[in-house]
């Protein structure tokens, strides 16, 4: 029985990221300490940490792959699978919940027709509930990609949803 051999694309990083990595590693007294910074850089470029990425980090830092994998699987911010181009993170914790965080989360889920931790069919948006992001005085808060949005009322949520949609149309 013949079987087509799947050749995985070789894992490669941009020269900019590689240059940053070369600068970061020697700053630490131990190479292993560069695990988190390297994973952040790779996730910024690739969107998630693949098995290959973890193995690449392990090789770069002269570690057994499990030592990187156990880090990737522990920390909530590392994605092991691709997620949407836009990442909506609604705070779930108490101060936001006391100020209507659940309704705000529901609005985002409805707008993009997804459940929690799901990505919209067009691959555009992932909605996630996250734990306290240290902005309780301006609850409820939503972090979209890297930007924190404070005092997110229902009207503000509608605006943010519209912005995400407009941005998606422009991008396509």
């Amino acid at each position: 029985m013949s079987q087509t051999t799947e050749t995985a694309e070789p894992f490669a990083l941009s020269p900019e990221i590689l240059a940053k990595i070369d600068k970061i590693v020697p700053r630490y007294p131990s190479k292993r300490s560069a695990t988190l910074p390297l994973l952040h850089l790779i996730q910024d470029e690739k969107g998630f940490i693949s098995q290959q990425a973890a193995e690449w980090v392990a090789e770069r830092l002269e570690l057994e792959p499990i030592k990187v994998l156990e880090v990737v699987t522990f920390y909530p911010m590392f994605q092991q699978k691709p997620i949407g181009r836009r990442h909506v993170k609604v705070c779930r914790t108490l101060s936001c919940a006391l100020n209507g965080g659940a309704q705000i989360c529901q609005k985002f889920k409805d707008a993009f027709n997804v459940d929690l931790n799901e990505t919209s069919k067009d691959g555009e948006v992932t909605v996630e509930y996250v734990e306290c992001i240290a902005s309780c005085g301006t609850a409820p808060v939503v972090q979209i990609d890297e930007t924190l949005h404070e005092n997110v009322t229902e009207e503000r949520a509608d605006q943010l949803i519209e912005e995400i949609r407009a941005n998606a149309k422009q991008a396509s």
Binding site: R27, L39, H40, F74, Y75
Partner: peptide, 12 residues
């Protein structure tokens, strides 16, 4: 003395 900013990754 040097100062390094080290980012966590979402774990309380």
């Amino acid at each position: 003395c040097d100062l390094i900013v080290h980012r966590g990754a979402g774990a309380y």
